[in-house]
Amino acid sequence: MQGTDTDLVERALRDGEPLPGTGGFAGQLADGRAVRDVLGRYPLFTERDAPGTASADPSDLDRPVRLPAGTVRSGDGDRRVWSLPEPPTFDHDRRAVAAVREAVTGSVAAVAGEDVAVAFSGGVDSAAVAAGLPDAPLYVAGFPDSPDIAAAREAARLCDREEDLTVVELDHAAVRDLSATVARATGRTNAMDVAIAVPLVAVARRARGDGYQRLAVGQGADELFGGYDKVARAPGDPRVDADTVRGATRELLAGLPDQLERDVLALRAAGVEPVAPLLHDRVVRAALRLPGDLLVDERGERKVAFRRAARESVPDRVAFRGKRAAQYGSRAARELDRLAREAGFERSGGDHVAQFVADLAGDVPAIACPARSE
């Protein structure tokens, strides 16, 4: 069982408890059933024609089928057993921010160790993780002119961590190699997934080469705390169906299992085990209780409660900094597009980057989604 012990998962099943106090889990129970936590923080796959055969690595299986989050799979099919709770909101802003701060600091401190490094892009998410791991080295990857490298250097200076920061500069040869690694590990060749994973895998490889076995990441903060523009614009943004900021935030949480599968598989292929303290159950519980104006305020400021909580451990200039998504901040998306066109794949086709990556990777595993979950 990844993430925790089987006994705890069995108790969570008996009690119907979706957030039993873990950082996620996935694996097989004693009776052979496969199970994955409510947010899908660890990936799990089973053999198409033999659901009792499961693995965290789809390459171990001939015809892997991913297990949806919150689901138990047996020979009788899939059964959804957990959904996120809908707790009442905090009744006081100060109490809410304090709860977020306590949850974040406790979860980050719990992953400390001599074998952990931090993926550090200079934004508030990775800075909050780094603040709780003062002895861990920091790594950032991007092209030399990228915003992420500039932001990481500035944030490291403001946090008095300049000597802890290692910059991994990307070039076209590295992007080709990293893209193929991502595709082979995840089964994905689309431009978005590959561009997101490339700088993360670059960081992981360098950290592993330096002797670190775990990589602490800031994943989950945007989904939990209202970090996306389309959430801030709800209900007016056509990219979300919800008619409130809180509803849009919960809607985006449904996409986490897919993202986390990509990240975990890619990082493991690079030789490190990812740890995501901002996705621990205690942080999720606190985030689910935030009212809309502590996710996005009337001025459009996003991740309000999280930023206020972080400002006690990181400078305000870092806590309240806006930052581009990794694929853009690292310049990976731009350069992938350029490489694909230079290799003769036409942008007019709509999937030129995917064709380019598939050509680089060669044999890309096919991972199926289940037909339905009952």
Results as ranks from 00 to 15, higher is better:
M1F: 11
M1S: 07
G3Y: 07
T6S: 12
D7Q: 13
D7G: 10
V9L: 10
R11E: 14
L13K: 04
L13G: 08
L13R: 03
E17C: 12
L19I: 08
P20H: 04
G27D: 06
G27E: 03
L29S: 12
L29H: 12
L29G: 12
G32E: 02
V35Y: 05
R36K: 14
G40M: 07
E47M: 07
R48A: 15
A50E: 13
A50M: 06
A50S: 14
L61Q: 05
P64L: 10
R66E: 15
L67Q: 11
V72E: 00
G75A: 14
D76I: 00
V81D: 06
P85G: 13
P88G: 12
D91F: 01
D91E: 14
D93P: 09
R94F: 02
A98Q: 14
V100A: 09
G106S: 14
A110T: 00
V111I: 12
E114P: 06
A119G: 15
G122C: 03
S126G: 00
L133S: 05
P134K: 03
P137L: 08
Y139L: 01
Y139S: 01
P144D: 13
S146R: 04
P147I: 03
A152I: 02
E154W: 09
R157E: 15
C159M: 15
R161T: 09
D164P: 02
A174R: 12
A183D: 03
R188C: 11
R188W: 05
I196N: 12
V198K: 06
V203W: 01
G211W: 06
A216E: 01
A221P: 10
A221K: 10
A232N: 02
R233G: 07
A234T: 05
D241Q: 12
R246V: 08
R246C: 02
G247H: 03
G255A: 12
Q259S: 09
E261W: 06
A266R: 11
R268F: 09
R268V: 12
A270M: 11
V272W: 04
V275K: 01
L279A: 10
H280D: 15
R282E: 15
V284A: 03
R285Y: 04
R285V: 08
A287K: 07
R289S: 08
L290K: 10
L294D: 04
D297C: 10
R299P: 00
R302H: 04
A305W: 11
F306K: 02
R307K: 06
A309E: 06
E312P: 00
R317E: 15
F320S: 09
G322M: 05
A325E: 09
S330F: 08
A332R: 00
E335I: 03
E335K: 02
L339I: 04
A340F: 11
S348W: 03
D351A: 13
Q355Y: 01
V357E: 07
A368S: 14
C369P: 04
